[in-house]
Design a protein around this nucleic acid. Structure first.
Lengths: 203, 203
DNA sequence: TAACATACTAAACACTGTTAATAAAAAAAC
DNA sequence: GTTTTTTTATTAACAGTGTTTAGTATGTTA
């Protein structure tokens, strides 16, 4: 019964190859500038083959999103490993998030700036198993730890976490979309925002 | 020479009609779901006619943007008229901005969540005469007034204004894009963010 | 009435995501 | 070893997109 397994492996391999190519192109040229035909050409298959492995283009987007959330979660965990103070850990995590957005704008756009039009993808995003949920939960748990250690005032970690995320996203999203706006030194802007959010949480 | 003027009026009228239809459809169905053919059908002209009045679809987007920025600027000014304290004025302005985004997500997306791919449109956005520039300048001037009246600490108004804008945008943008995320009560989230930003500026 | 400028449109180009029907290849059954 | 069945991949097509080119009316001027 090794034949079936080998075929399964081959199927999985091609699926992965499609996904990798999609990610590469999305990151390099931006989601809306990548057509299914372009992906197909790159992997040297006909366009319709992709549909045997992914329901549609938005499922490809979803899959790349999940990858991205996973990467983000891992870098969070990595930061947490090398830090003792949860507050410092949280700040480093947020700065890492922002840096990612600035360094990989197209990648960030895929993960945080497209709304999947289809309901089933939205539902998948919300499932507790989704990498997005896990990454957010991790963020919230660090905030909760800050509160538990009384390094933050007694606040609902959910509020603090969502507010922090929004502040970080606001910076990244505007930098990306309004990239020709005469921004003050971005570093200063990031610092000011983070200081504002944190000092209010510590107060 | 009244004929030429009448024709000019007629031209301007049709241009305005196209623009209004475009805005209506963009707001109702979202920019990416509105085709030039759909706009044309609505105004009962052929699709090519639109190109006699607007260079391309992105110029239509730009024009609607300018309208939006102008509306936003006017509501800022209206708020300023009915308020004595610049801090209170600033807060009301920001809340008004956020409310607009929540009430008219498609409209907000057009103005703040699309990057015009073409350079010339980006340049137009940056010109000092553009409504976007004017609206931002107004925001920054209110912040500057807060600093002048020593109701804010001595900070570069540009930094404060951009940081405030980003915080507000972060909330609205995430609410729109991740609209199925289990957000805590939005009102609370908005309050927390604004309090954070303001208390740091007042300190 | 003839020439001209303006306003508009039909047809086409080169794309897009996606589907239905079909061919090729591999595996299973006889 | 040949035939049937299943899996995999492709060709052709549909319905749509933004945009351009070439051509047609129409109202204005000479």
């Amino acid at each position: 019964m090794g034949i079936k397994e080998r075929r399964e492996r081959q199927k999985e391999f091609l699926r992965q190859e499609i996904l990798e190519t999609a990610r590469e192109l999305f990151v390099k040229e931006g989601f809306e500038n990548v057509s299914m035909r372009k992906i197909a050409e790159q992997i040297e298959y006909s366009p319709t083959t992709i549909y045997l492995y992914f329901k549609d283009k938005s499922e490809l987007l979803y899959a790349v999103c999940e990858e991205t959330f996973e990467t983000l979660l891992h870098s969070f965990e990595e930061i947490a490993k090398h830090s003792t103070d949860p507050v410092q850990c949280l700040e480093a995590g947020l700065r890492n998030y922002i840096d990612f957005g600035l360094k990989h704008p197209n990648h960030y756009k895929v993960a945080f700036m497209y709304r999947p039009e289809q309901l089933d993808n939205l539902e998948k995003f919300l499932s507790p198993d989704s990498m997005g949920t896990k990454a957010y939960s991790y963020l919230r748990d660090i905030v909760a730890e800050c509160v538990r250690q009384k390094k933050f005032k007694d606040i609902d970690p959910e509020i603090a976490a969502q507010s922090l995320w929004a502040a970080a996203h606001g910076l990244v999203a505007l930098f990306i979309i309004k990239c020709h706006f005469p921004w003050i030194d971005k570093e200063k802007l990031i610092n000011h925002t983070i200081e504002s959010m944190f000092s209010h949480l510590k107060a």
